[in-house]
């Protein structure tokens, strides 16, 4: 006597039951008729939300600066501005390469897209390496996140941003996997591109605020 569990529709699917008759009831949406959302609408909840987190960091940082503008100025001037500038250029270049990759992918130019992505990935790694070198230099000169409020925000802002860069590198690498399999542009591909541009955009603000505005 065998126990034929495969016929038991009450078992969940992963225990051999039948696939559930599941489908989300879609509410009818009004057609906008114009414009194409990059990636998908839900992505922008994340993108705008993450940008707002950094926005909140920026607001509080500048607010804290009001209590000690001279201290902020002295500390900010200690930063390696040229490294920051190179990093800005590197990320802007990487964004350009991501745009190039996306358009190549759309047109079926898989090899060209892959090359662009390799370039963008390399830029991301260069950014990370420069940032680590910068951290070592700053820490080596005795400055820690606890030194003063400026350095707290310097380390937290650039640190959380660096985390975003590293995640972006992983996303771009996965995009290269999509290219290798010869698949067309997906929501994921466009979403990764938008994410990378967000990483670039956030750095541009961080550089301007921390390295330039605070130091003036």
């Amino acid at each position: 006597m065998t126990l034929d569990i495969s016929a038991d529709a009450d078992l969940p699917e992963f225990l051999g039951g039948a696939a559930a008759d599941s489908q989300r009831v879609r509410r009818p949406t009004s057609p906008t008729g114009e414009g194409r959302t990059p990636g998908e609408p839900g992505l922008w909840v994340f993108i705008l939300g993450d940008m707002s987190l950094f926005g909140a960091f920026f607001v509080v940082a500048l607010w804290q600066r009001r209590a000690a503008p001279a201290q902020f100025e002295v500390s900010a001037q200690e930063l390696m501005r040229s490294t920051g500038l190179i990093n800005t250029a590197v990320l802007l270049l990487s964004s350009y390469l991501v745009v190039s990759a996306l358009w190549a992918h759309r047109r079926g130019g898989m090899r060209r897209a892959t090359l662009s992505l390799v370039g963008a990935l390399a830029c991301g790694l260069v950014f990370a390496a420069l940032k680590v070198a910068e951290y070592l230099h700053v820490l080596g000169s005795g400055r820690t996140p606890a030194t003063d409020m400026f350095y707290t925000f310097y380390f937290v802002l650039t640190g959380v941003h660096l985390l975003h860069v590293l995640i972006g590198v992983v996303l771009l690498a996965a995009w290269m996997g999509v290219l290798r399999n010869g698949r067309a542009v997906t929501r994921y591909v466009e979403g990764s591109a938008v994410y990378w541009h967000m990483v670039d955009l956030l750095w541009v603000v961080i550089f301007t605020l921390l390295y330039l505005v605070c130091a003036a």
Binding site: R24, F46, D50
Partner: peptide, 18 residues
């Protein structure tokens, strides 16, 4: 099968960062 709205997935990613 889209059992839950996709934006909820993105909200979860956002919350993780927060």
């Amino acid at each position: 099968r889209g059992l839950l709205p996709r934006w909820v997935g993105y909200v979860n990613y956002w919350v993780a960062f927060l």
